[in-house]
Amino acid sequence: MTPLDITTQLLQVLCALALAPAFLGWVNQCRAWLQNRAAPSVLQPYRGLRKLLIKESVLAENASSLFRFAPYIVFGTMVAAAAIIPSMGTGLPMSLAADGIALVGLLATARVFLSLAAMDVGTAFGTLGARREMMVGFLAEPALLMTLFVAAMISHTTSLPLIAAELTNRAPALYPSLAFTAVAFTMVLLAENARIPVDNPATHLELTMIHEAMLLEYSGRHLALMEWAAALKLFNYACIGFALFLPWGTSREAWGPAGLALAAPLLLLKLALAGGALALIETVSAKLRVFRAPEFLATAFLLAVLGLLVHLLLGD
């Protein structure tokens, strides 16, 4: 564990914390442009967080301590996840402690706590959101795992930095297996981050909502943590995508500090492009009925399994 590794680690976590709301703001801005609306500033999510943080928190009368504690756990797991995804550099001390499978486990922990907290007050919307979130989750989680497995089988390890490093070392060629899983991963990203076509982040009071339904009873600092965690989740998913499908430019241990200096602007560029692509997908697709969401996710799961089969048939 060199000082550079520790710097990379710290820098990466702080970057994730700082950039995640901006990335969300950027996606919203792109979407507004594409839909011919006046765009809110990229900084809008920060203003929202600040507002929520200073407001008082109103708890429902029968909320238990699980309800109060859940935002911290969800936030904590998302930050921990940000620490193990090689978004800027591959020399991450924390990535020893958690590989790709553990990352999926961490994300599942956040989902379970979010759903349990949503059921805690006992409103119709909360339980409905929790049920739908778990429905999305039980199909999206294995699809994500399969996506990671394809990359893991190509690089013979489940450690994310090693996967990123191994994929960078290879000549930039199109792997058919990775192409399948990239599509699957994009679908999982949309579903897990409550984006169109599975959920609509812009609506409340609609019978089709999932993520927002779970947060309805939260307010003040608890809501701020939940919103921040949601932004971090989107950021994390984008970075998982970069590590698996666009690993070039991630700093290597051998490159020294110069590698980090190169990786940071490259990450910004990738995020900008990914945000634009995400906004485009959301603009051109329509929201699915909730009953159709499992089909969408089953398609993602089958595509990921297909990617695995293609890898096994064609080899590396």
Partner: peptide
Amino acid sequence: TRRGPAWDC
């Protein structure tokens, strides 16, 4: 922090 009735939309 204040306790209040559940909002439930």
